[in-house]
């Protein structure tokens, strides 16, 4: 049981953060808040990948250090692949946020508000 907890607690926290992000997306009326929720959601997924990349025992970061940690034994190093993927994912996330900001400004310029309720009221007219 303790083993299961030690092995899984990172996942539970990731889930909590993911749910906070989803909550922001679903329940917040302000569009900037929604965007913040989106950012939290994205970073939480990054966290999931990074946390599964870790290895137990005598490991080091994925930078070659032949003297102390011979690369032939893969167990010496953290798995570099999820890290790489997440570099990409972070940049993608920033690009998405950039687009979201662009749209936010465009919406504000047209309707002078970023509140969902007020926007919908304006559409009805």
């Amino acid at each position: 049981m303790a083993d299961f907890f030690m092995g899984h607690y990172a996942y539970w926290f990731t889930i909590i953060l993911l749910c906070i992000g989803l909550y922001g997306i679903l329940f917040k009326k302000n569009l900037i808040k929604k965007t913040i929720g989106l950012a939290i959601l994205q970073i939480s997924v990054v966290l999931f990948f990074v946390s599964v990349a870790s290895k137990s025992g005598d490991v080091t970061v994925p930078v070659r250090d032949q003297a102390n940690f011979p690369v032939e034994i893969a167990a010496n190093y953290l798995n570099p692949l999820p890290h790489t993927l997440m570099l990409t994912a972070i940049v993608v996330g920033v690009a998405t946020l950039g687009v979201a900001f662009t749209l936010l400004i465009a919406i504000y310029n047209r309707y002078n508000t970023l509140d969902e309720q007020e926007l919908i009221e304006q559409f009805d007219d």
Partner: peptide, 19 residues
């Protein structure tokens, strides 16, 4: 008209889907 807002909604739901 509401094109940016429609796009923003799409962005939120689409990015959440992608995530």
């Amino acid at each position: 008209r509401q094109a940016p807002y429609a796009a923003f909604r799409y962005l939120i739901i689409g990015t959440a889907g992608g995530t």
